[in-house]
Structures are given as structure tokens and as C-alpha cells.
Simulated scan of single mutants.
Amino acid sequence: MELFCHERADLNSSSPVKSAPIRAFRDAVLTRDTRVLQNLLSLEKPNISGKHIAGAESEELLRMRKILTGWMLQVCEEQKCEEEVFPLAVHYLDRYMSQSAVRPCHLQLLGSVCMFLASKLRETVPLSAETLSIYTDHACSVPEILQWEVLLVSHLQWDLASVLPSDFLELILLALPIPAQDHSSVRRHTHCYIALTATELKFSFFRPSVVACSCVTAALLRLKLLQDTVSAEQMLQMLSNMLDMDKASLHVCFSALEQMIEQTLPAPPVQTQDVPL
């Protein structure tokens, strides 16, 4: 009898971009167990617990963080990583920067190491140090990435299994008053908004459950799945009761996300009237 491991099939490929591996099925038994939700709520914490990131008082470093996270997102998308890899990498990035000042010349190296480590925890086929070095145009060498990996896990005190907003998604989907056939669209939009929030520092101060509820509600609004049934306010109230969270914090996060989405989405084309020649 032969055994096939499909998710490893792309390791021998000469292509620098891997093909999408086969993912494991979601376990309905676990997603319907309330103990899973309670465990997630008890373990979650925001990326940053203080009032600032060490050394990030300057607008320049915050601007560079925005550029860095945009580059990290592009790498994860091109490498077809699991949706959780990028948010987890940013989680590591913010936690490290909240403890230690980072020189601007080391930001790309730190971002590479965060993706390297996050992919080991959340990816079927982890990103290699060689691949990440190529994405930096060899500005970050393989030995540097491996050396900084030890430095990163040491600063994080080996506390790497962090709770992410996407960890709440399947649990929230089961409670939504929408047909099951719409779950795929909601899931796809929600992952997109979670990635979007990871590029902005202000969302790192919210708990993952708050970000998850805000992104799900935003997805439902954009997909018009709440029309004539449940308002955004009612959805936020329902999720707030379900996860026993601070409603004020949820409203602040959702409002910030809505504003960010409006600024990110392209403006609609201007309608002009026909002018006779």
C-alpha cells in the first residue's frame, strides 16, 4: 500500500513560488465545542499591552512598519501561505518592537524572521530561510535569518502559540444567522480584513476576538448578508454577548476598520452626463 503526502509534493519543484498545498478539513466536533471558545478567550491577549512601541515614537519608524508589513503580506500571498501566517508574523513583530528598539536597517531582517517563525507554526510547508533571503534581494543572508530566529524566540520567551483573530472565525460562523453556503464568502472576506488590520498598528492594541468580530461584521455588510434581517448594531451586540466582550472596545475597533476599508477601497467612477458636441 502506498502512502501519499500531497502537501509535500512541491518541495522538489524548481519554481520559486510553491503551489497551494492540500489543507486539512475543519473538525466540526471541535468548532462546536464551547470549551474551545472559552480556552481561546482565556489565552488571548493583544499584540501590544503597553501604550507605545519601544523606539516607535518617531513617525518615520511607524511609516517604515507600514511599508514592512505591506511587503510581508506580499511575500505571504505570493508564497500561498495559510491565512494565519501573516497575522501571526505581525504579532511577533509588534511584540518584539514593544520590548526592544529596532534599528531601521534591521526591520526587513526582523520581518523575514517573523515570517520564518510564523510559517513553522501555521504553515503546512514552512517558508525556507533561502526563500526569504531571495525576497530581500539577499540583503538578509541565511545565517542572519537563522541567528535572529534564536534572538526572536528568546525575546518572546518561547511563547509562540498565540491566539489570532482567525482562530475565532469558525466558531463565529456557526452562530451567524446566514445560510451555510455563504460561509465561504464570509470566510474569504474576513481573512482579507484581518490581514488589513495587521498592517495598521492601532489594531494591535485590541484583543484578537474583538478584531475577529469587527472583521466578520464588516464582511457581512460588504456582502449585504445582513440586509433586511440584522443590522450591524445588532450583529455587534450579538457577538459581544456571545464572546462576553467589552462592547465599547468592539465599537471602537469596528469603526476604525470601517474607516480604513473606505480609505482603502477605490473610489467609484464619476458619472458624467453626455455633452452634445
Rank of each mutant, 00 (worst) to 15 (best):
S128H: 01
L110W: 00
V102C: 14
L117I: 12
P126L: 01
H106F: 08
Y135H: 15
M115S: 06
S112Q: 03
T136Y: 04
C105A: 09
Y96E: 06
R103A: 14
E123A: 09
A129E: 05
I134A: 10
R103S: 15
V125H: 01
S119L: 08
L93N: 10
V125A: 13
C105S: 11
K120H: 04
M97E: 04
Y92G: 05
L121E: 12
E123D: 09
L109W: 01
M97K: 09
S133G: 12
R122L: 05
L93Q: 11
H106T: 03
S119W: 09
C140V: 15
Y96P: 00
R103V: 08
Q108F: 05
C114L: 10
T136R: 08
H91W: 01
F116R: 01
K120G: 03
H138P: 00
C140I: 11
E130T: 15
E123W: 04
S128Q: 07
L109F: 01
C105W: 05
S112P: 10
Y135E: 09
A118L: 09
D137L: 14
A118I: 12
P126Y: 00
A118E: 13
C114A: 11
L93T: 11
L109Y: 00
P104V: 04
L117F: 00
T136F: 07
A139I: 13
A139W: 01
Y135G: 01
S128I: 02
Q108K: 05
H138F: 14
D94N: 14
L107Y: 13
V125R: 01
V102H: 06
L127W: 05
T136E: 06
A139H: 13
S119P: 05
L132Q: 13
V142D: 08
F116L: 12
H106Q: 10
L117A: 04
E130K: 14
L110R: 04
Y92E: 05
C140A: 15
